[in-house]
């Protein structure tokens, strides 16, 4: 059975469900994000506008959610692609480690940027 190569007995069903829930959130968030950023080539991109949004508590909450769920959705997706391959356990653990560590590092970078203002 494949699961023994991943050091886990989880079927992945929780990940499957969360992937869909975060995906539904990201559909709406992405539509809003694109309208805001590209209504004209300049909208949303200036320093002042970005700072104003990050200084607003509601926008801040939105961005923190966006960063968190976006990263989780993307990295869980990458991991579920990798799980389709038959990997030696050392390779699976290494790749999983890279996903978790890099994901956490970029999450900290994103969150610290949003919280600075």
């Amino acid at each position: 059975m494949s699961f023994k190569h991943y050091g886990s007995r989880k079927s992945g069903s929780v990940g499957w469900l969360l992937q869909r829930i975060t995906g539904i959130f990201l559909i709406f968030a992405m539509v809003g994000h694109y309208i805001l950023m590209h209504y004209t080539p300049e909208t949303g991109h200036s320093y002042e506008q970005s700072i104003a949004r990050f200084s607003n508590v509601y926008w801040k909450m939105f961005y923190l959610t966006f960063i968190t769920l976006g990263l989780w959705h993307g990295l869980n997706g990458i991991w579920s692609i990798l799980r389709d391959f038959k990997m030696k356990s050392w390779l699976a653990i290494t790749l999983y480690g890279i996903i978790v560590i890099s994901g956490f590092a970029f999450w900290v970078l994103g969150v610290s940027t949003a919280l600075k203002f």
């Binding site: 320093y47 970005s50 700072i51 990050f54 960063i67 976006g70 990263l71 993307g74 990295l75 997706g77 990458i78 890099s102 970029f106 970078l109 994103g110 610290s112 940027t113 600075k116 203002f117």
Partner: peptide, 14 residues
């Protein structure tokens, strides 16, 4: 996902 990393890194310039 790769772009998201670049995006977060680029915006940290703020």
């Amino acid at each position: 996902t790769a772009y998201l990393y670049v995006h977060i890194y680029a915006l940290s310039t703020l």
